[in-house]
Design a protein around this nucleic acid. Structure first.
Lengths: 183, 183
DNA sequence: ACCTGAACACCGTTCAAGT
DNA sequence: ACCTGAACACCGTTCAAGT
């Protein structure tokens, strides 16, 4: 338990991510976060409206290393960086999917804009649909990969021999990008 | 409440889907399903090991109209039929995503095989990666579309003018398919 | 074989009351 | 302003005991 630091949105997010990485999304409950901070459950609700808001804030932190970049990346590179960022936290892909599924997610717009820019296409409509498709691909493929990893870790079995996931990921992205080039 | 029919896996699944369509996935709890059937919560566990198993069974029912077909469809048509099947039930895309994310999902293999066959490519590896990518696209795009629909229905606002979702969906699929053609 | 009753170990969220 | 205590209205799951 962290001792006696002033409670704030940021300390709550940090505590929640420690629980996430140690025990997974299912165990990242408001009550456990509160206990971890040595505080009553209700205290969290002074700083956050609800759990969805906490999840959104965590998603932003998870995505930050992939997004806060000055140089414009290629779409391949951006997709790869997103995957890496998601894999860096237990259940990261699932959590971010949940956050971006909320209809009022601002982050989703940001990510799609950055993907769209990376595509560097003339047709804005192709960019929009292509960026959305790319994001779906990244989230879907990474969620599946991560759940397989976790299952393997839980059961002690090695990962299934479907060919290396990173390579499959890049190939899926590459197929879509080729298709977009002929938009 | 259904009255006095013998409890079985099938009647439970039917009751659960009625709650799903009426109140959504968040309200589809084991306890509410039991109440709807006029039975104690524990009774369900004679017929099902746990809630995950119920969700898997519902996913199969939702997907059935898209999959149980004799004639081999084009990948465009199959993708479209999957989207339609998911949209036919409240939170259908989210529920099926959850079911197919379970590492031991048999249905996921079936769907990917059918997509892979529909692709009708020579290279088996391209088929495998392509089918997975297509499935991610279908689930991701439809989950988003459905959550936007629900949000619009809940708030009374009309859907956002992003261009018609069905058209965007077909375009996303089409881009990926073009890319696969040049695999 | 199939189901009930009752419990176990939890949830997210609210809100008066305290400091 | 910020937090506690205590409650409200729930969960999924188990399991002795009944029929």
């Amino acid at each position: 338990m962290l001792v006696d630091v002033q409670l704030s949105r940021d300390t709550i997010v940090t505590a929640a991510m420690e629980i996430l990485d140690s025990y997974g999304l299912a165990d990242m409950t408001m009550r456990r976060v509160a206990t971890h901070l040595g505080v009553a459950p209700g205290a969290l609700y002074w700083h956050l409206a609800n759990k969805q808001q906490l999840i959104a804030a965590i998603a932003d932190r998870i995505l930050a290393p992939a997004l806060d970049t000055t140089d414009p990346a290629s779409p391949e590179e951006l997709a790869d960086r997103l995957r890496t960022a998601l894999l860096a936290h237990r259940d990261g892909a699932e959590l971010v999917s949940a956050a971006l599924s909320q209809p009022d997610s601002e982050t989703r717009g940001d990510v799609e804009k950055q993907l769209s820019d990376a595509l560097a296409l003339d047709d804005a409509d192709v960019s929009r649909v292509g960026a959305a498709a790319l994001l779906h691909l990244v989230l879907g493929a990474t969620t599946l990969e991560q759940s397989h990893r976790q299952y393997a870790a839980d059961t002690g079995t090695p990962a299934p021999p479907t060919g290396t996931p990173a390579e499959d990921f890049r190939r899926g992205v590459s197929y879509l990008l080729h298709g977009l080039g002929r938009g």
